[in-house]
Write a protein that binds this DNA or RNA. Structure first.
Lengths: 253, 253
DNA sequence: GCGTTAATGTTAAAATTATAACATTTAGTG
DNA sequence: CACTAAATGTTATAATTTTAACATTAACGC
C-alpha cells in the first residue's frame, strides 16, 4: 500500500500547492485511477491533504482546513475572545496606524477592521498578515525576517529599527503572562524586540489579554504593566480589576 | 433580507477569522437559528464565507477556498507548470539558499522542497511564504514591507539592502515578458528592486518562464536576458531554443 | 506458470448535504 | 388590532458523498 500511493499523493499535493481545491473526481482523473483509490490513499497514508465534502484541500494551509471544527465548547470560548476584541475595537479610530501583535488573541479583531475606510496595520506575524491581506481597505505592512513556526511570526536584527521608522498610532500587544510584580511576558524571545519597539514608538499602548493570563509568568519578559496606557481584558471586574488596580494603567474591565 | 442576516455573517466571519472551519450545524447553533437560515444568508448576501461540503470556510483565505476547482483543462495546464518546475528543481541542491520570486509560476516547486533536508528560502511574496511556512525542513526568510495585493508581495525601501546582506545561492526569477531585444519584464514596478537585487547577489541566476511569455514585453523592465545563467522553459525546443539561442544563457529547453 | 497477496475497480447501501415547497413566526403599518 | 410582507422554521425530496463488501487485476516469489 505504498509506492504508487505516495506518488499520487505527491502529485496531488503539488497540484494543490498553488492554492485552490480539487474535486475528488478531478483528482482521480489526474492520477488516472478511480475515486475510491484516491479515497484510500488519503485514509491509508498520512498526508497534508484532507478531504472536505468531496474536495481535496491542503490541510496545513493556515486558512481553512486545520480540521479543528469549532464545537459548541470552542464556540463559547470563542465568544470570550470575541468580546475581548470588541472591547479593543472601541479604541480604534478611522485612519489609525495599528501595530498588531502575534498570537491568536487579536485574530477576531482583524475581520472587524473591514468596517473602517482607511487603516494601516503593522505586524510581524504571518497569520495576522494573511487575515489583513484579505481586507481591501486596510494597508498592510509586514515586518519580515526569519520565520519562527512556533509563533507564526518573524524575527530580525533590524526589526526594532524598522518599527521606529513607522508612525505607529496604537500598539495592540498580546501576552502569555501578566504579573503585577514580574511584569508582562511571552513564550518566545524573538518576540521581545518587536514588542518593545512597538511599545516604545506607539502613541497609545494597549495590552490585550484575557483574565486567564493574570498571575502567570512566562520565560520572556518584555514590559512592566505600567508601560501600557490601557489594559483590555475580559475579567468580571471584581477579580481582575482588583488584581490590576494597583498599576498605573486604566483598566477596561 | 438584511440587517440580522448581515450580523450573523459578520459573527461567523469573525469566528472563522482565526482559521479553521465551522460546521453548518455549529454555525446555526452559534447564531441560534436554523441551518437553513445560515444557508440562505450565504446565498443571499455576498460574503467572504463559502460553504464547502457542509462546512463554512473563509473564501478569501489564500489556501483553500478560492472556489476555482481545477477542472480537467486547468489540470492539464497545471501539468505544464509542473513540468517547468520539475526542470527548475533539477538545479536545486541540498543546503541551498534560494531566492524565490513572486507570482504563481514557482508555486508547484515549493512542495517539492520537502524532499530536501536543509534549505533556506528567501522571498518577498506572501503566497510563497505561506507555502514554505508549511514545510518543516525549510528555513523561511520573508522580506517584508508594504503589501501589494495585485502581486501578493511586499515592497520596501531597503529591500535591496536586505537581499544583499543574505548569502543567496540561487535566484529563481519569474517574469511576465521575455524579449530578446527588450529584455525581461514584469507587471509591477515594486518587483523590480527585489528582482534586480537578487540577480545582483545570487551566485546562480535562473529565469523560469513558460514559452507563452516569449516575445512579450511588460511595463516593468528588470533585466537583460543574458543577466541569467540559465533559462528554464517548457518550449518544444525548436521554437524556444531558436528564439533564445542567440543569448548567452544556456537554455534548458 | 501457479498460487498468493497487495492494489485497484465496481457496485450497492447508508449517511450526509442541498434544494424546494410550504408552514409559521415576527416586525412593521395603517 | 388586523393585515401584510419579510424572515425564519419545517419537512420532504433530490443529489451527493461516504462506507462497505466483493470482484478484478497486477505484482511477486517459488
Amino acid at each position: 500500500m505504498n509506492g504508487r500511493s505516495a506518488q499520487r499523493l505527491a502529485k496531488l499535493q503539488e497540484a494543490l500547492a498553488s492554492g485552490g481545491t480539487l474535486h475528488l473526481r478531478d483528482a482521480a482523473e489526474l492520477c488516472d485511477v478511480s475515486e475510491m483509490t484516491i479515497r484510500r490513499d488519503l485514509t491509508t497514508q498520512v498526508s497534508a491533504i484532507s478531504l472536505l465534502g468531496g474536495r481535496l484541500v491542503m490541510a496545513n494551509y493556515p486558512g481553512v482546513t486545520p480540521i479543528y471544527d469549532l464545537t459548541e465548547q470552542q464556540a463559547s470560548h470563542y465568544q470570550a475572545k470575541y468580546r475581548l476584541c470588541q472591547r479593543a475595537l472601541a479604541f480604534i479610530e478611522e485612519g489609525d496606524t495599528l501595530f498588531i501583535d502575534c498570537g491568536s488573541t487579536l485574530m477576531p479583531l482583524l475581520s472587524q477592521l473591514s468596517h473602517f475606510n482607511e487603516l494601516t496595520v503593522v505586524t510581524y506575524a504571518l497569520n495576522v498578515a494573511n487575515a489583513v491581506a484579505a481586507l481591501p481597505n486596510v494597508r498592510l505592512v509586514l515586518l519580515g525576517g526569519l520565520f519562527y513556526a512556533a509563533s507564526q511570526s518573524f524575527g530580525s536584527d533590524n526589526m526594532a529599527a524598522s518599527i521606529e521608522r513607522l508612525g505607529i498610532n496604537k500598539a495592540l500587544i498580546s501576552a502569555a503572562g501578566v504579573d503585577l510584580e514580574r511584569g508582562v511576558s511571552c513564550f518566545h524571545f524573538h518576540e521581545v524586540a518587536p514588542k518593545q519597539a512597538a511599545i516604545a514608538t506607539a502613541m497609545q499602548r494597549l495590552l490585550v489579554v484575557d483574565a486567564s493570563k493574570f498571575g502567570v509568568v512566562r520565560p520572556a519578559y518584555f514590559a512592566a504593566l505600567d508601560d501600557f496606557d490601557v489594559v483590555v481584558t475580559d475579567g468580571e471586574g471584581a477579580h481582575s480589576s482588583q488584581y490590576l488596580g494597583c498599576g498605573n494603567a486604566p483598566l477596561l474591565s
